[in-house]
Design a protein around this nucleic acid. Structure first.
Lengths: 223, 223
DNA sequence: TTCTCTTGGTGACTAATGTCACTATCTTCC
DNA sequence: GGAAGATAGTGACATTAGTCACCAAGAGAA
């Protein structure tokens, strides 16, 4: 029985090498070897905080399994949703802050059981210098996060809550790849820094327009 | 007379070498030499657009003279103020987009006569690979812009217009280093994506609290 | 079953912000 | 000086979003 459990565990947890080849095929072979030789895996349970305001980093993280939600924290503990990071993504913040040994103003929470690849900070300079595909990966990570923040600013600066809600649901649908969004009105309200009543009312309007169906504990996105 | 004008011009326009030594003292000597040998200067008049939505980049820009205001554009042409860049700063967007040959969603406008150092894109890989001080400079540029965007999100997501206005004026005071802010209520309203009347009323309240003095065409920041 | 908790619906009210209309003052240009 | 334009002040009102109070339905536990 014990042997069976171990076998299962080995089955479910790919090696660093397998993760890298699957999720980062664009890396040049030498870079892959370098990472395989120098990185470690770390697991987080759903709900666990990967990093938080004021925390220093000892490693840069690449997500290889699960899903991580990034929040900006308000003065009174509000949690404003910024974006998800998924397998194949890097945590831009952990790169930036790692490089400068600065603290972060962001909270990253695992919303599924998550596995991250930890790259020791001292290795970063070397990777950046020696591997062009790494340098491009880092640049692309920054660029796409930067774009996401800009898009977020657009929404809160120029749009009303109705449009933001619609964008939020569409984004969930696209990221999670399911029309059945398992989320409560209260959770949406938290992510958008609004209140449940407002969200409920707007959802009702959207249902009347035929964009979605409301159910207890989940929303069916049709549009 | 012509000779006099030329002499004046030479006097007022430092060389690339002078700019680099003055504004980027942290660069290693070989990097300075490399830049001096490969960069060009470009001047922009106050009010001129340095780059705009949908435009491709052929160079990365370092600002060496003047001041540039960065805006995010709304769907109906609104211009939402993001941040200033000043001598010694790089345009993070021009780095990111240059590297990926992607387009930008941002407008950069010179608000003073401005001079930029243009670095040809093909040089970027080499600089990144060969010069550690360049790599650190690029990372620090990303990090600080990213922080600025996050701070902006904080403000529009969590704060009211009164706090945002106060932050805006304080920011102007700190960046421009003068208590006499030459700006109209309408311009502030544009930058904050609000309306003149709202700004006027909030300013009046701040004046009553003794934080500032209102004058035609300028505001005296006291706080 | 009954109790309790979570989730969601709704009306009434408040606060913040935006809009409209009008006025006043100062500047600039003939 | 007078006209026109830019800048700013203000009251009235509309709209959006947030808050409060309360109800109702479903889910799970004792």
């Amino acid at each position: 029985m014990l042997i069976f459990v171990i076998a299962l565990t080995m089955d479910n947890q790919p090696t660093i090498s397998q993760y890298i080849h699957k999720l980062f095929p664009q890396f040049e072979p030498a870079l892959k070897e370098k990472l395989i030789a120098n990185c470690t895996l770390k697991s987080f349970q759903a709900g666990e905080i990967l990093m938080q305001t004021g925390q220093f980093f000892r490693s840069t993280m690449l997500i290889v399994e699960g899903r991580v939600k990034l929040y900006r924290q308000g003065d009174e503990g509000e949690e404003f949703f910024l974006y998800y990071i998924q397998p194949g993504d890097a945590c831009a913040l952990s790169m930036i802050c790692a490089a400068k040994q600065e603290t972060s103003e962001i909270t990253a929470k695992a919303i599924e059981d998550t596995v991250a690849l930890l790259i020791p900070i001292p290795l970063m300079d070397e990777l950046m210098r020696d591997y062009k595909t790494w340098y491009y990966f880092v640049i692309e990570t920054y660029r796409s996060r930067y774009e996401e923040l800009l898009q977020m600013i657009d929404h809160i600066a120029f749009k009303g809550m109705d449009e933001r809600l619609e964008f939020y649901l569409k984004h969930q649908y696209e990221k999670l790849k399911t029309r059945q969004l398992n989320i409560t009105h209260q959770e949406i309200a938290n992510d958008l820094n609004s209140s449940r009543e407002v969200i409920s009312r707007l959802l009702k309007k959207m249902e009347q327009r035929g964009d979605l169906l409301l159910n207890r504990n989940y929303i069916e996105w049709i549009k």
